[in-house]
C-alpha cells in the first residue's frame, strides 16, 4: 500500500515537473517572438523593466569579466567601443551578470560599479541577476551571449558576438561582428540578416 502511494506521488510529481518545464519552455526567448519581459536592479540600485524601453533598440550582453572570451572584447576595447557607439545612436545597452552568489563572476553592486569603472565599460546599466531568472528565460549559456530586441519588444538577434570563437585578442579586428552588423541594419531601417549564431564563451555560472 505504502509503495503504491509512493509511486502515485512520484508520478504526480513527475507530471508537475513536466508541466513546469513546458511552461518554462514557452516563456523562452525565440527569434521573431516577444522577448521575455523582466525587471532587474542595476549596480546603482535603479530598477529597469524591459517593457519600459519599448520604442528603443535594446542590447543584452551576458557578462563575466574574468572569462577570457569576455576579456578578449574588453582588453581590446571592442565592447566599450560598441557600447558607446550605439548608445550615441539611442540604443539601450544592458550588461547582465547572472552568476549566483558564491559562484565565479558574482559581484555585489559596489564591486560591479568598480569593475565597470576600471574597465571603462559604457553600458546603459549593469543589471544584476543573481538568481539567474532572466538568464534562464533568455537561455543565456555563455559570456558573452548577445541579444538584440527591437522597439516592438521582439527578439531579432541572439547568439555569438562574432564569428571567431577564440580567446585570441588579434581575432577581434577581422571578425564578423553580428551585433554591430545587426544594429547597423536595424538603424538603417532594414532587417537583421543573421538572426542567430551559435554562441561561444565561458558557461554562465548559475
Amino acid at each position: 500500500m505504502k509503495t503504491r502511494l509512493l509511486s502515485i506521488m512520484i508520478l504526480l510529481f513527475g507530471f508537475l515537473l513536466t508541466g513546469l518545464v513546458q511552461a518554462e519552455d514557452r516563456k523562452r526567448a525565440e527569434i521573431g517572438k516577444k522577448a521575455p519581459d523582466f525587471t532587474l536592479t542595476d549596480a546603482s540600485g535603479n530598477k529597469h523593466t524591459l517593457s519600459d524601453y519599448e520604442d528603443k533598440y535594446v542590447v543584452l550582453e551576458w557578462l563575466n569579466h574574468d572569462c577570457p572570451f569576455v576579456v578578449k572584447h574588453y582588453a581590446t576595447g571592442n565592447m566599450q567601443m560598441l557600447q558607446e557607439k550605439y548608445r550615441d545612436k539611442g540604443v539601450v545597452w544592458f550588461s547582465v551578470i547572472s552568476s549566483a552568489p558564491g559562484k565565479q563572476g558574482y559581484l555585489e553592486p559596489d564591486q560591479a560599479r568598480k569593475v565597470t569603472r576600471d574597465k571603462k565599460a559604457k553600458p546603459s546599466a549593469v543589471l544584476l541577476d543573481p538568481d539567474g531568472k532572466v538568464g534562464r528565460a533568455y537561455d543565456a549559456r555563455v559570456t558573452p551571449h548577445m541579444y538584440i530586441i527591437d522597439p516592438q519588444g521582439t527578439l531579432v538577434y541572439m547568439g555569438a558576438i562574432d564569428d571567431r570563437p577564440s580567446t585570441n585578442h588579434d581575432d577581434v579586428k577581422d571578425a564578423r561582428n553580428f551585433v554591430r552588423e545587426g544594429l547597423n541594419l536595424l538603424l538603417d531601417g532594414r532587417d537583421v540578416e543573421v538572426t542567430s549564431h551559435q554562441p561561444y564563451g565561458c558557461t554562465v555560472k548559475y
Binding site: D66, C67, P68, F69, K103, Q104, T167, C202, T203, K205
Partner: peptide, 8 residues
Amino acid sequence: LVCKDICI
C-alpha cells in the same frame, strides 16, 4: 582552454 568554474 582549460576550465573548472573558470576558464583559462
